[in-house]
């Protein structure tokens, strides 16, 4: 014998499970929603450039970024604040 579908039955067997599933999904994704978009290596980068402790300690205007030197590997000699020789390291991932 097939029981009749009533509003109460639907609430118990459909509404409550749906509510539980929604709550679990919210708990799982809450942290990623709160922290915003996350960097994923290999995918495109979406954000404008950020310069921390830069010349004006603000985000630079892309139009005002320095021009690259004509010959790679040679440093510009004009200007008062030009580093003479530089060191450091490089890496990629």
């Amino acid at each position: 014998m097939i029981p009749e579908l009533t509003g109460h039955t639907l609430l118990v067997f459909v509404g409550i499970p749906a509510l539980v599933i929604a709550a679990i999904a919210l708990l799982v994704f809450a942290s990623s929603i709160a922290s915003g978009p996350r960097y994923r290596p290999g995918l495109s980068w979406w954000a404008p450039p950020v310069w921390i402790n830069g010349p004006a300690a603000t985000k630079p205007d892309p139009a005002s970024l320095p021009e690259l030197p004509a010959a790679p590997g040679t440093l510009a000699t004009a200007g008062s604040g030009v580093a003479r020789t530089t060191g450091g390291a490089s890496a990629s991932w």
Partner: peptide, 17 residues
């Protein structure tokens, strides 16, 4: 100083600039 963003060409000369 920390810069996070893209470079139009080679990264090393860009970082030196």
């Amino acid at each position: 100083s920390v810069y996070v963003g893209g470079a139009d060409s080679e990264t090393r000369p860009f970082a030196q600039e």
